[in-house]
């Protein structure tokens, strides 16, 4: 259940940004979660709904996009079949994780500023 500590870090970051820009309110935030981020998106959402009350995120809608994991060969770029060994059968080199597959990123915050 580390989703709760992630939400704590997330809200803390939003608070710092809102303070820095003297925002009056936060209206929304966008986050990106890759399949191999080690985070259950639904649990993360539940944790956010639980913890946002009484914080700067109280009225901020959470926009969450997910991304499936993908591995490719670093030399020929051929995709590795899902569930297959993580090695290119043709080039015989270890596969590379496609960027975003393990992302856990705060992309943007909508701030209401004076």
């Amino acid at each position: 259940m580390h989703e709760y500590s992630l939400v704590e870090a997330l809200i803390g970051r939003v608070e710092a940004e809102a303070r820095r820009r003297q925002a009056l309110a936060v209206h929304g935030l966008s986050i990106r979660v890759g399949e191999l981020a080690g985070v259950d998106p639904e649990l993360l959402r539940t944790a956010y709904e639980t913890f946002r009350a009484g914080t700067v995120c109280e009225r901020a809608e959470l926009r969450l996009t997910t991304r499936a994991a993908a591995w490719v060969c670093p030399s020929c770029d051929a995709p590795i079949e899902r569930g297959a060994p993580l090695r290119c059968p043709a080039c015989e080199v270890p596969a590379r994780l496609v960027e975003g597959s393990d992302a856990l990123i705060l992309d943007a915050i909508d701030l209401e500023v004076p």
């Binding site: 992630l6 870090a9 997330l10 803390g12 970051r13 940004e17 820009r21 009056l24 209206h27 986050i31 856990l104 990123i105 705060l106 992309d107 943007a108 915050i109 909508d110 701030l111 209401e112 500023v113 004076p114």
Partner: peptide
């Protein structure tokens, strides 16, 4: 502040961060 007509309304601005949520831990 709205500077177009000087009405004093607040503005909604999108702030792009593209930061790891665990950046503090990292």
């Amino acid at each position: 502040m709205c500077t177009t007509c000087g009405c004093g309304d607040t503005e909604l601005v999108p702030v792009e961060l593209h930061e790891k949520i665990l950046a503090g831990n990292d």
